[in-house]
Structures are given as structure tokens and as C-alpha cells.
């Protein structure tokens, strides 16, 4: 059984053998198909590698990717995506849970390290983190929701920008992405500020947050092992 990781690795290596024209055509297909949500990852990667092999062989015989797959790559990709089996519910749930845990792990770890560092190195703050349990729960769930919206927006944006005849300027794309990111960060902070104090107050040493981050990260690794490729 070839794992998804191995398939992606193989794809990355082989892709470099494509001519510039074929690479451009193939990579758009790859983006479009890979970002189709809810499809079996294993089947998707097997298909992508298969298509790549086909282009490579056709290339050796002097045919281009456009000749192999036709002049309507978007419609062709939609047709392919429609036939790829869906990811199992279980894997989808495990994946979302893992991403959520990773997000919480990273934010918790770095706020712990940053907060503790400020205190121990520069004597800024108290080295303690004070919070209200109710508010903390609201902030965490709102932030997870925002993360979900952020990922969805980026995916949709990437999908919408593939197969465009006239590519928007690179600078504009960077600006758009920066805009989406800034808005998201702003919203994360806004949630933190707007949420009123609710529930009993609590206080823990800020460094503990880093520890919590590590624990959450380990749990997310366990989730990863439970995801079964199919």
C-alpha cells in the first residue's frame, strides 16, 4: 500500500520532469482536484499521479497535456472530481478534529512561551494568566469557528483563481491574501476584546499554556494515526 504521503512525494519529484507548458497545465489541474473538498485523499492522490504519468509519457512522444486532456480542463476536472469516492465521515471528522487541535496547540504553546518570556526576561506582566472560564470557552469556540471560515475562504479563493485565462497580477494576489489574513487576525483579536467576563475567574502560570499546547499537539498526533487511508 502506498501511503498518501508517498504519493505526494512521488508526484513532487516527477512533476519536475514536465516541460514548462505541460507543468502549467498540469499544476492547475492538480490544484483544482486536490482542493475539491470531501474526496478520498488516497484516491485523489492516486489519480493525480496517474494523470501525471500519462502526461509524462505523452510528452516523450511529443504530445502536450492539452492534447491529452482537452481544451476544457475545468470541465474535465469537475467530471473527475464527481467520480472520486467521498472521504469517509469518520476520516472527515478526525481530520477536522486534528486541525482544530493543532490550531489550539500552536496558539496555546506560543502565547505561553511569549507571555512567560516577557515576564522572565523583561519583567513585563505578572507571569500569570487570568481568565473567566465562561469567557475562555466562548473565545476558544469563536476562534475555532473563525479558523474554519478562514480556511474555507482561502480554499474557495484558490479554487476560483485556477483556470483563469487572464491571470491577475501577482501583486494583486498577494494583496488579496494579505487582506484576508489581516481581516482574520483582526476578528480573532476582536472576539478576545468583545467577549464579556463570564463564569468563575481562574488564574494559571502563563508557562502552563505552553505545556497545554504540547499536550494538545500529542493528542492531535494520536488523531492522525487513527485516520485510515482508503
Amino acid at each position: 500500500m502506498t501511503t498518501v504521503q508517498e504519493l505526494i512525494q512521488l508526484n513532487n519529484t516527477k512533476r519536475s520532469q514536465l516541460t514548462r507548458e505541460n507543468l502549467k497545465y498540469y499544476e492547475e489541474m492538480l490544484l483544482y482536484i486536490r482542493f475539491a473538498s470531501g474526496r478520498s485523499e488516497q484516491q485523489t492522490e492516486e489519480l493525480l499521479l496517474e494523470l501525471l504519468e500519462h502526461v509524462l509519457q505523452a510528452q516523450q512522444e511529443g504530445r502536450t497535456a492539452a492534447q491529452v486532456f482537452g481544451d476544457e480542463p475545468k470541465a474535465y476536472c469537475e467530471e473527475l472530481i464527481g467520480e472520486i469516492p467521498g472521504e469517509t465521515r469518520k476520516n472527515q471528522l478526525l481530520f477536522s478534529a486534528r486541525i482544530t487541535l493543532l490550531f489550539l496547540a500552536v496558539s496555546s504553546f506560543f502565547s505561553g512561551i511569549a507571555g512567560a518570556g516577557m515576564y522572565y526576561l523583561f519583567h513585563i506582566g505578572s507571569g500569570q494568566t487570568n481568565f473567566h472560564i465562561g469567557s475562555a470557552l466562548i473565545v476558544v469556540s469563536m476562534d475555532v469557528l473563525l479558523l474554519y471560515l478562514f480556511i474555507m475562504t482561502v480554499l474557495r479563493w484558490v479554487k476560483a483563481s485556477t483556470f483563469k485565462e487572464a491571470k491577475p497580477k501577482k501583486g494583486l494576489e498577494v494583496l488579496q491574501f494579505a487582506g484576508i489574513s489581516t481581516l482574520s487576525v483582526g476578528l480573532f483579536v476582536a472576539v478576545l476584546i468583545i467577549t464579556p467576563d463570564l463564569g468563575p475567574a481562574a488564574s494559571i502560570p502563563t508557562l502552563y499554556l505552553a505545556g497545554i499546547g504540547i499536550v494538545l499537539y500529542i493528542i492531535s498526533l494520536l488523531f492522525k494515526r487513527r485516520e485510515i487511508s482508503r
Binding site: E50, L80, P85
Partner: peptide, 22 residues
């Protein structure tokens, strides 16, 4: 067209008429 076999291969796999193996 060469590419038209791939949607069919996917469907035949889904219907379990053929099995693919790396």
C-alpha cells in the same frame, strides 16, 4: 480523447467492476 478514460476508470472502480493497485 486520451483523457476520457480516467473518469470511466474512476466510475468502474466505484462500481467495483475493476480494482486498482499501485
Amino acid at each position: 480523447s486520451e483523457g476520457s478514460i480516467y473518469p470511466i476508470l474512476l466510475r468502474l472502480q466505484k462500481e467495483e467492476l475493476i480494482a486498482g493497485e499501485m
